[in-house]
Write a protein that binds this DNA or RNA. Structure first.
Length: 915
RNA sequence: GGGCGGUUAGCUCAGCUGGUUAGAGCACCUGCCUUACAAGCAGGGGGUCGUAGGUUCGAGUCCUACACUGCCCA
């Protein structure tokens, strides 16, 4: 048998191979289980079909993969469901851009041809992101991959729409919506991003009819005056009280409109009088509703002015603004113009300035859905981590507005509503109707709009399992266990999934007719997921947001090619402290690449010893059983076993709490600083014991033990670093592994009986002894190769530990010999004192008296400060009366130790030759 | 304007219900190619925990104010 591994770890040489293997072998496929017991499942937040993998995806998927691999290895039935989102606007724009290069427009092609073209695009380019995901090692069930426009999901979308419509929770109406003139569609409030911008506040004078006076209003969008149908003042505003009810002339269009009283007018802002344009401003729209004002729409879907704007028709909104201002100036009706900071809304997708515009759209009446979505979170049926997102969620949910769900696009789920040309009413139906449901007219046509992409993704937790059919999948997999996602889609997606899930999986509008207990049970089972873990943003090393324009985007694929997927995954995990953004730092990744290399070389070392022992007949691989804990023979064995189980326990707790950072750091430190730095170094002595039969027996037990811990560590590490652990794990079994993948083995289970604090304390003493000797040698500048005699004064118990581990001390501290003495060594050259022993390196070299004095003085100062503080506490009556026994005892003990140490150091200082 | 966070070593961040000497990685300094690993080993330096008060026997940790800073919503 041979375990030939290259000296340095090369992730590129193995990762692609394992990634393909996991997919090809369908290792993570789950068939429908019989019961909902012992299931752990989660949904991949579906990336846009047009998407390319970015660092945020990688963080998200790394976290999900760690969690799902961990649960899988705990023997749970795990399902991680992948899919992609059809991403209405994004995809349509992408294909339109492609068409533009062929000098084509979708309008010329017609709807059907265009949609066919999008599907074609999707077949060619769509889902590239899923291939990138495979490269990350994501252990999803590829056999269950979905697309939000799949036939079955489309059926479910229609079903939801029809039911909500029938329940009065979807309505159509003419309202002010956010309109993107570039995308030529309405967008929801959430799709508008607000930006502080330097603009201007214009004052315009409106002549009052029957007087020579004017009323002056202030506005940031003067062109909208062409659609004014009133002027509003605050009824409490003394300045304007007498003007209420008077009529003014809207300049340029010469329409006569009334001055009305409305609380919305803020006396503090501008002149206190505001123009009212119900068709182009949401607040003005509301005023219009209250006062029954006319709505005059002056813009078309491209934000050019229309025929209602008279002479300005055909002008773009900004050209019209310029012209309107010029014309007002000419008529001497333009007042002060001043600089003004204002917040303007831009389209999330294309960054075009959004125009509030009156149009007919479909809306979801959100209050009944929100009410239940608030209840489940308040009652803890859905748990948020970090907890503060609960507050953010509830805050938003309590101030929610109706959701505009129609989009004037072609790509998406078409709204299942048909308008009647005769009676003007809508027929909403699952299947295309032949005639109007109201007047039986055959002159009906389907609504041309499609649904907001988030409408269908809000349904995924149940539609992907077969809803509206009552499938076995739905029964066992719903609710999903967990959702891991970024805060950026908390409202877009998370909140809406909760609303939709709790409604459709919670008896819809019939829930409240259940009795209390039944209702509670139903409600609890209706949630789309039991827990939500929300992660932060991945930023660049300088904490800047990554963006294409800044050019600071880190491509995950590029970075994994340089450092290896495992190293990048480990970086993200180790920095994923909840609530804080990750400043992605390559230095850190470099460190974890070194960690992978460390694991690799530990494997090389162990394999080398396995081969050697096998050749000498000291050991056979056949006898190795990972499930069996071998007897711990020595201090180092007992210690590493204790540490292994303690770390296993710590990992368990950290992962339960989604503390990826804690988990990663714990396993890192264990493997490197404990297993490699101490255990392997010590066990080398036994591995190289010799050729006699008893030596071979020693080697055998040592090797078995080392392998036991090492193999267990690979399993501990495997969720974090699936590639390197898979590769090495297969090599451990020399190509004949007990399972197809380390991912299908069991995660180590902590045995608290094997965690032994006395053993750990004893080892800590041995370590500090060795470190002290090393420190003295370093200070005395003893050549590395030169072994030096060591003298020590130690109490019996400690002496025993040192004696029993003499070999380790000799090897690790470069000690030639260890002699015990009764006399104090504190005054001797090359000595160091500790509470438990005094140690001295015997080395004939003149010490640097000045340096030694400085070192001792510094040490003394530190210890005295500590002792003072301890003494202060001990002489404080309040402290002695109130502090817990444990704390008091600890301080008392420490104070005694300090007194001893201080005396010794003082004496050593006194013994130094005068300078 | 409303809400939520952050401020700890040169940098990036931990520090769990207040308790004995505030930690890690990177960077830095010194010495080592010790046959697993120089992507390594050993040793070392570096912090008045944003500021000012308060609660407490005891505060990085709890409270208040302020400063700076980030994000979300309007």
């Amino acid at each position: 048998m041979s375990h030939e591994l290259p000296k340095a770890y090369d992730p590129g040489a193995i990762e692609a191979r394992w990634a393909e293997y996991w997919v090809a072998e369908k290792l993570f496929h789950v068939s429908t289980p019989d019961s909902a017991k012992n299931i752990f499942d989660l949904l991949l937040p579906p990336p846009n079909v047009t998407g390319r993998l970015h660092m945020g995806h990688m963080l998200n998927q790394t976290e999900m993969d760690i969690i799902i691999r961990w649960h899988r290895m705990r023997g749970e039935n795990t399902l991680w469901l992948p899919g992609t989102d059809h991403a209405g606007i994004a995809t349509q724009m992408m294909v339109e851009r492609q068409l533009a290069t062929e000098n084509k427009r979708r309008q010329d092609m017609g709807r059907e041809k265009f949609i066919e073209r999008v599907w074609e695009w999707k077949r060619h380019y769509g889902g590239a992101i899923l291939d990138q995901m495979k490269r990350l090692g994501a252990s999803v069930d590829w056999g269950r991959e979905y697309f939000t426009m799949d036939e079955n999901l489309s059926v479910a979308v229609k079903e939801v729409f029809v039911r909500l419509y029938e329940q009065g929770l979807i309505y159509r109406g003419k309202y002010i919506v956010n309109w993107c003139p570039r995308c030529m569609t309405a967008i929801s409030d959430l799709e508008v991003v607000h930006e502080e911008t330097q603009g201007k506040l214009y004052e315009i004078r409106y002549p009052i009819i029957g007087s020579k006076d004017y009323i002056t209003v202030a506005t940031t969008r003067p062109e909208t005056m062409l659609g004014d149908t009133a002027i509003a003042v605050n009824p409490k505003d003394e300045r304007y009280k007498t003007l209420i009810g008077r009529v003014v002339r809207v300049p340029l269009v010469n329409r006569e409109v009334a001055i009305i009283a409305d609380d919305w007018a803020n006396p503090e802002f501008g002149t206190g009088a505001v123009k009212v344009t119900p068709a182009h401003d949401p607040n003005d729209f509301a005023i219009g509703q209250r006062h029954n004002l006319a709505q005059i729409n002056i813009m078309d879907e491209t934000a050019k002015l229309n025929e209602n704007a008279g002479p300005y028709a055909g002008l773009d909104r900004y050209a019209a603004r310029k012209k309107v201002l010029e014309d007002l100036e000419k008529e001497h009706l333009l007042g002060h113009v001043k600089e003004h900071m204002l917040s303007i809304g831009k389209c999330d997708r294309c960054k075009t300035v959004v125009e509030p515009r009156l149009s007919t759209q479909w809306f979801v009446k959100i209050a009944p859905l929100a009410k239940r979505a608030i209840e489940v979170v308040e009652k803890g049926h859905i748990k948020f981590t970090p907890e503060n997102y609960k507050t953010i969620y509830l805050n938003w949910m309590n101030n929610i507005y109706d959701w505009c769900i129609s989009r004037q696009l072609w790509w998406g789920h078409r709204i299942p509503a048909w308008h009647c040309a005769d009676c003007k009413q809508d027929t909403v139906a699952r299947e295309a109707p032949a005639k109007c449901a109201h007047c039986a007219s055959a002159k009906i046509e389907q609504d041309t709009d499609v649904l907001d992409t988030w409408f269908s993704s809000a349904l995924l937790p149940f539609t992907t399992f077969g809803w509206p059919k009552q499938t076995k999948d739905l029964e066992v997999f719903y609710p999903t266990s967990l959702l891991i996602t970024g805060f950026d889609i908390l409202f877009f997606w998370v909140a809406r999934m909760i609303m939709m899930g709790c409604w459709f999986m919670g008896d819809e509008n019939k829930l409240d007719s259940l009795n209390d207990a039944q209702r509670e049970e139903k409600l609890k089972a209706s949630v789309p997921f039991r827990e939500v873990y929300i992660h932060a943003l991945v930023r660049d090393a300088d904490r800047q947001k990554m963006s294409k324009t800044k050019g600071n985007v880190i491509d995950p694929i590029e970075i994994i090619e340089r450092f290896g997927t495992d190293a990048v995954r480990f970086t993200l995990a180790s920095m994923a402290a909840p609530g804080t953004d990750i400043a992605f730092n390559e230095d850190r990744t470099e460190g974890y690449r070194a960690f992978a290399n460390k694991i690799w070389n530990a494997a090389r070392f162990i394999f080398m010893n396995m081969d050697k022992a096998q050749q000498s007949g000291a050991w056979t691989a056949a006898g190795f059983d990972p499930a069996e804990t071998p007897d711990a023979k020595t201090l180092e064995d007992k210690w590493i076993l204790s540490r292994f189980h303690a770390v296993t326990q710590a990992l368990d707790e950290s992962l339960k709490a989604y503390r990826f950072d804690e988990a990663a750091n714990a396993v890192y430190r264990f493997f490197w600083n404990e297993f490699c730095d101490w255990y392997i170094e010590i066990v080398k002595l036994r591995l190289n014991a010799g050729e006699s039969d008893s030596d071979k027996a020693t080697t055998k037990t040592a090797l078995t033990f080392t392998l036991h811990i090492f193999e267990g560590s690979l399993r501990l590490l495997s969720p974090f670093m699936p590639f390197i652990t898979e590769e090495i794990w297969h090599a451990v079994y020399d190509g004949k592994p007990p399972a197809k993948s380390i991912a299908l083995t069991r995660y180590p289970v902590a045995d608290s009986k094997l965690v032994n604090s006395a053993t750990e304390a004893e080892m800590a003493l041995l370590q500090s002894f060795i470190v002290d000797v090393r420190t003295i040698r370093a200070e005395m500048k003893v050549e590395n190769k030169l072994k030096t005699p060591v003298e020590t004064q130690a109490k019996d118990g400690i002496r025993k530990t040192l004696e029993q581990n003499l070999n380790s001390i000799q090897k690790l501290a470069n000690a030639e010999s260890l002699t015990f003495t009764e006399k104090s060594l504190a005054n001797a050259a090359g000595a160091k004192v500790s509470p438990h022993y005094e140690v001295r390196v015997v080395y004939e070299q003149k010490i640097d008296v000045a340096a030694e004095r400085e070192r001792l003085t510094k040490e003394l100062k530190k210890l005295e400060a500590e002792k003072d503080s301890a003494q202060r506490q001990l002489s404080n009556e309040q402290f002695m009366a109130k502090a817990p026994e444990k704390v008091k005892e600890g301080i008392k003990r420490r104070a005694e130790e300090l007194a001893g140490l201080i005396a010794k150091i003082q004496s050593a200082l006194a013994g130094l030759p005068k300078a």
